[in-house]
Computed example of a mutant assay.
Amino acid sequence: MADSERTIFAPDDQQDYGDNPTEVRETDKYVEEYVRGFVEKWDELIDWEQRAKSEGRFFIDVLKARGKQTILDVSTGTGFHSIQLLKAGFDVTSADGSAEMLGKAFENGRDHNVVIKTVHADWRWLNRDVHGKFDAIICLGNSFTHLFDENDRRRALAEFYAALKHDGILILDQRNYDKILDDGFSSKHKYYYCGDKVTAEPVHIDEGLARFEYTFPDGSKHNLNMFPLRKDYVRGLLRDVGFQQFHSYGDFQEEGEEKDPDFFIHVAEKSYAGD
């Protein structure tokens, strides 16, 4: 997502938040957070095999049920969903604001015998770097939470909307920050971050910051500062940008079936069914 002209890269294995980490609340900071040492460990956190089992064909089925073929993965990370969709026969373009993540994604694609088409792009200027219109855009892995400024969120969603065909859909996920803010943090550790030897827990929570710390088996620790998005707020933004229909899932289940889900998944459609 990062604008390459403004990117400042941190040392390979070192994150720097200055003297007041909980005061770092800016969109562009995420580029520095994904240092090489963190990116190289990211797949330990996800555990690709377990995650594939836990989410099954959810995204494949959602896309196929709506007849979508060309997919823009705007937060490809290390490539998990791009690779799953490529293997399922979709035409996928993979974008990310972290050059380190894109490098790892391409490497993972090669290891899985697929070629990932990567684009280094900032969501706020997405259509400057990514050309053409897509049947669907996916923004997964709680990535939208990297945007700290409301104008950035609105601008990014407008860019997503513009990159979709007239009947396109956006699939966007987020942590259940409502529960974290209102009741405190707990996690089933079942669907998203499946690595059983890695912990991901908040070390600071307020209405404007969710600061998570990730601890790996080798004892190393890395952090991410994220904006705690409430579910109804996100749906309101999607509506304001122009999306016509919404369907939200909790941990891959119909809304209401999963009590206190760890994650919400929003499927937003650009046009009404039958338009």
Rank of each mutant, 00 (worst) to 15 (best):
V114N: 03
V39T: 07
D218S: 07
V234N: 00
T78P: 05
F212M: 13
I8E: 14
F59A: 03
P228I: 11
A88N: 01
L209C: 08
L140D: 01
L237G: 05
A162C: 06
D152S: 09
D173T: 05
A10I: 05
D16T: 07
E40R: 14
G141W: 02
E33T: 05
P11N: 06
K117F: 09
D111N: 15
G77A: 06
S220P: 07
S98Y: 02
F227V: 00
A88M: 00
K117L: 11
R110C: 10
S271R: 14
T145A: 15
T93I: 14
V130K: 06
G250A: 05
L209A: 07
Y191D: 08
Y193S: 06
I138F: 02
G250Q: 05
K53W: 09
Y30E: 00
R66C: 10
F106K: 15
N142G: 00
F160M: 08
L224G: 03
T22P: 06
E269F: 12
A10W: 12
D149I: 13
D183G: 08
I137A: 02
R6M: 11
H81L: 10
R230W: 06
G109Q: 04
Y193I: 04
L224C: 11
D28T: 08
A162W: 01
A162D: 14
I8S: 13
K104G: 00
R124D: 00
D275Q: 10
H120E: 14
G103I: 12
D262K: 01
L126A: 09
E257S: 12
K259W: 10
L237C: 07
L126D: 02
C139T: 02
R110G: 06
T78N: 09
E150P: 13
Y193F: 15
K117W: 08
T118W: 05
I60S: 06
L102V: 04
I116F: 04
V234F: 03
K133A: 12
E269D: 13
R57N: 15
W123A: 01
E201W: 08
E32Q: 13
Y233A: 09
I169W: 03
D182P: 00
S186E: 15
S4Y: 13
H204D: 08
L102K: 00
D196K: 13
D218V: 06
K190F: 12
D149N: 10
I169G: 02
Q253H: 14
L102Q: 01
N225A: 14
D183Y: 13
F264N: 01
K221Y: 10
S75Y: 10
E55V: 15
G18T: 05
G274A: 10
G242F: 01
L85E: 02
M226S: 10
M1G: 12
G250M: 06
P11W: 09
I116T: 07
A99T: 10
E23W: 14
E159C: 05
S4I: 15
I169C: 11
